[in-house]
Design a protein around this nucleic acid. Sequence first.
DNA 1: TAGTAAACATACCGGTATGTATAGTAACAG
DNA 2: CTGTTACTATACATACCGGTATGTTTACTA
Lengths: 195, 195
Amino acid sequence: MGRTSKVGRSRTPAADRILRAASEMFYREGIRAVGVDAIAAEADVTKKTLYEKYGSKDRLVAAYVRARDERWRSWLLGVVERRGGTARERLLSTFDALAEWMERENPRGCGFVNAAAELPHADHPARVVVMEQKAWMRGYLAELAAEGGAENPEDLAERLVILHEGATVAFSLGMAEDAAQKARQIAALLVADLQ
Amino acid sequence: MGRTSKVGRSRTPAADRILRAASEMFYREGIRAVGVDAIAAEADVTKKTLYEKYGSKDRLVAAYVRARDERWRSWLLGVVERRGGTARERLLSTFDALAEWMERENPRGCGFVNAAAELPHADHPARVVVMEQKAWMRGYLAELAAEGGAENPEDLAERLVILHEGATVAFSLGMAEDAAQKARQIAALLVADLQ
DNA sequence: TAGTAAACATACCGGTATGTATAGTAACAG
DNA sequence: CTGTTACTATACATACCGGTATGTTTACTA
């Protein structure tokens, strides 16, 4: 009977519109820049409904980060799976997934990094999700690295994470042309040992 | 007789305290999370004085970014100059400068990236400064790359920028141990051609 | 057809945001 | 001793913030 007792049930249409509107606005304008009134208006919903569905702005922000994470993961895994190949090739495919993702969904940089910038406190529910997301990404790359027979999979994963994050920032602040492509080429140097 | 007519004169003690307090608070808590009242209180100054010195919060934010940029540049150039060596060695020294900077002044990641996350609008005075800062960094690395005889200095600079930004994000979100050190090692691979 | 869930409309709360106004004080330079 | 600079103190204007209250409508379904 907790306040999250609806977990598992499908979201109502209104709850869906709220999350969609919030996600778009939080990412584009920044979290603190967007008020709940504006979200409710954009979702064509009353504030009452918003608070019945999400409880508080902080929890809505957490839901936004979680939803974005789900979209990114399924996109990433989809691309990597579709391309297939050896573990080495799949490690490099993550940069192809990143390249397309950035063009289509990431003009303002990494939504998780941006959220962390606005939410410094470690116990904020959304920041917890961000940290989990970043840990997952590192773990995923480490798995692929291990599968590819890397001498030190964790170490390789950390280096690839640096390239992922760097490409994202460089892209969004206009510091590099084809940032993901360049990051991929550098990654290829690191991964070459695995062959 | 514009509103910035005092440029060139030395800052008053109060103006100095305001900028110092604002810098610390903006970086630690986020820009939108910090109100002008709190800054004035922390600087032991009245709001009136704050507005006489900086005109608006937006201009104070721009001053914060500018001051941070100045500190970073002088730290970076100082380290690179002190270490000396060939252009190749100086390119790698930028990662040593980054490593120490992060330990001492950057626990919350890149202040410029964080500011850009909170200020999406291209014409915000502080965002303009951020973009200049990032362009300068890229240009500085390109200069060193050219001096080192790189085949394509701009291209090399962009790859090094990716490593700088990636190391910063990975460090601040706990994704990599010794991120700057790892980035430096990768950079060494890229720079090896210059020898 | 009665009951229930999901949503509606509207108005309000205390608090805080940026920015301004009025009036006064301390130090110093001509 | 007069004027200027740099500040203090306090109060105000206006708008928006997250969050809540009361009551109504719509649509499905048992």
